[in-house]
Design a protein around this nucleic acid. Structure first.
Lengths: 200, 200
DNA sequence: GTCTATACTACGATAGAC
DNA sequence: GTCTATCGTAGTATAGAC
């Protein structure tokens, strides 16, 4: 039996502690406003250790960014490209699974969009959405049903309805009162409204 | 006759040159990643002059932020609260006027949302959307038509459909090809789809 | 692997001449 | 009002002891 790398109960290795702290600080303040000292402090370790493990602030950030991109797109890809699902079922699943993810990680979409804005290369060579979408099952199904409408309009509306409340949360829901409950009931609304758009 | 402050033909005073440069750099890179030296260079003036006119990076940023908030909300407020307009007409005007504004200033919504995220006080004491929305004409009209749905869901969907393509532009439209033409045709789509949502 | 101490650079801001 | 020169500090990263 080969020796496996041991994983501690709470995965509380130094490397993981730094990563966890980096997730918090980067997603809260953004790359530019984050100081490596903040991360070190939050991780409860010395600043030098951060560079020992990750070489630089930039390299550490890249790792977090890749993680977050996978989180955000990991939900959408298996649904959108599953030919076994009807278009209607796709919309239901997308709304439900996305909102589930976002209630747990409300800062996720704005983090990614903000960092891409500041540095468009965050995305380069990591995700190629356009080619992916063009050949996707959801696009084919939509075009069949609505050949008169450019499919990207529908995708943008569906994603907009789902993601926008989280993106604009500080503006639209500044007091945060029962935001989660609203999002819970929103799952059904998005599906219903998206279906209505199909016929209109 | 009192002496008026003279306005040069192209308003090319030093102060305005700095502000114009600040608009460009801040909206492109965000507050934290912006260096005052970049602004000075772009304005074609010396770094010291920036502080002479605006005292600090922070103060200069505040001025730009207020401008941008007025731009973004200036479009929405007169429509949303105009009792003379039907709900349907409001949706048409909102889509049309917002997209007109955003085609000219595509970076506007993501700039504001990103900066609020990094520093929520950017908004404090500047705009009170919640109180404003609660008493708005559009909310009353919607509640009358659809007492079964929390109105904020509808607002979020309408704004999401309109704003999201611009917020997610680098992801959804990375090649930028005929983006403007798509947005032009989107005006009608948003209105049609929003109306369909009213009945669903 | 982890720490202390420090090098080095970049940035915001100001002093002071013109 | 505008410039040059510079101060002070904060930030990333590394050297070297333990």
């Amino acid at each position: 039996m080969t020796k496996q790398k041991e994983t501690k109960a709470l995965d509380t290795t130094t490397e993981e502690k730094i990563k966890e702290a980096a997730r918090n600080v980067f997603t809260q303040k953004g790359y530019a406003a984050t100081r490596t000292r903040d991360i070190a402090e939050e991780a409860g370790i010395n600043l030098a250790l951060l560079n020992y493990y990750f070489r630089s602030k930039e390299k550490l950030f890249q790792q977090i960014m890749v993680e977050k991109l996978q989180q955000l797109f990991g939900v959408i890809i298996p649904i959108v490209n599953n030919d076994a699902l009807t278009l209607e079922k796709k919309m239901e699943l997308l709304a439900e699974n996305y909102i589930n993810l976002l209630v747990k990680n409300p800062e996720l979409p704005l983090f990614i969009l903000s960092e891409i804005r500041t540095n468009p290369d965050s995305l380069k060579n990591k995700i190629h959405i356009q080619e992916f979408l063009e050949n996707s099952s959801i696009i084919r199904q939509f075009s069949e049903k609505r050949p008169d409408v450019e499919p990207i309009h529908f995708i943008a509306s569906l994603l907009g309805m789902t993601l926008f409340p989280f993106i604009a949360k500080p503006i639209l829901f500044p007091n945060n009162t029962n935001f989660d409950a609203l999002m819970e009931e929103r799952k059904k609304l998005v599906a219903v409204w998206a279906k209505a758009m199909l016929e209109a």
